[in-house]
Design a protein around this nucleic acid. Structure first.
Lengths: 205, 205
DNA sequence: CCAAAAGTTGCACGGTGTGCAAGAAATATT
DNA sequence: AATATTTCTTGCACACCGTGCAACTTTTGG
């Protein structure tokens, strides 16, 4: 089940450095606030030169968004593993719900809340979602094999992601220190929002 | 019908400079490409000091997005003027369709296409949409007077805007030099996308 | 053990964004 | 009309950003 996966020292070092930088960025964001620290500080805390930081990320905000990025990454790969015949919306709902369970969600809530006070961070997050959207559109287009117009696909995918975003927003707005299972709470909201979408937002329940 | 609206020289000058800067930015973007010019160049072309530029905009990209911003501005005010009883989706469809007619659309298509090649510009655009979304959510919440959950409202508004964005995207992707009425072409797509949303994306027509 | 490949680092350089204080222009006051 | 006041512009200084480049160190593979 687990092939050796011969990860050389090269690769491992890169992974470690990347982690270290991301972690340093997050720590700093927690202690000093979202936009209130410099790349040099991140680099220093990660035990790496300023120049090396820029070999890994284009900006401080990008380093903060590693979590977001990996969440979306997971959602995409989860979606692409759905059976072929399944209705689109069902597949997407299932994929997002599954992803919500797996991830370490506390960080996402934090980031969402931080973004409210930091335009740069917000922009970076929006960008991450946008890139994910593009990839999903591509996946869906491929999945449907020309059976739908580009407009249909991009409107659909955009709407689904908007619902997911709304769910996370709503979820993150609740008490930061969560009672019980955060995954369940988020998943519930995702399913709820996507059900609303499915019936065309007919009733404002 | 047209009250004098005594606009002092102060205000008028500010409006003019703002226009001049935005125009200069757009001209430069057209000739040199989206991310390939500096603030100093914009300022020079607008006949203004570098420092003054930053009194009006936070970045070159923000100056480019004046059009986008005003489009959304118009859509919002158009929406807020809809009759109170009207179903939400109808009101939004009407507002967006009306806005699509009025605006000078060529520029929007241009900007959409430019954003594809300039991460910074794209981020700025996404940010503009996001701010508009927040305002619309507020307006809708107010409009419904507590009759709907926050999740419902933000999922709905997000989805509607995603459809509008998808419509513009699809529209902008067509021949840059448009045959006939651009407004009609865009409006048609908006209505189409929003109809798909209304029936829950049931058929991938 | 050595040579090629890949990664890190310092340096330099042009660009960004903002606080500040001095000056110029528009507006208000007498 | 002359002056006082508010508002906007501008230059300057400064810290920070992002990247090309060349030297250096580590990993890898023969």
């Amino acid at each position: 089940m687990e092939p050796p996966e011969p990860v050389g020292r090269r690769e491992q070092n890169k992974i470690d450095t990347r982690r270290a930088i991301a972690e340093a960025a997050l720590t700093l964001a927690r202690s000093k606030g979202a936009g209130s620290f410099t790349v040099d500080q991140i680099a220093a805390r990660a035990g790496v030169s300023r120049r090396t930081f820029f070999n890994y990320f284009h900006s401080a905000e990008e380093a903060l968004n590693v979590s977001t990025e990996s969440f979306l990454e997971l959602a995409i790969s989860s979606f692409s593993r759905r059976p072929a015949g399944e209705p689109l919306l069902d597949a997407m709902i299932a994929a997002l719900a599954a992803t919500a369970k797996v991830q370490d969600l506390a960080v996402h809530g934090e980031l969402f809340r931080m973004a409210a006070g930091s335009p740069e961070l917000l922009r970076a997050q929006l960008h991450a979602w946008e890139r994910a959207e593009a990839r999903i559109i591509e996946a869906v287009t491929h999945h449907l094999q020309g059976g739908a117009s580009p407009l249909y696909v991009s409107a659909l995918v955009g709407s689904v992601l908007s619902c997911a975003k709304a769910a996370m927003h709503d979820w993150a707005a609740d008490d930061p220190d969560r009672h019980g299972d955060a995954g369940a709470a988020l998943e519930e909201r995702m399913v709820l929002a996507l059900s609303m979408l499915r019936d065309g937002f007919a009733h404002p329940a």
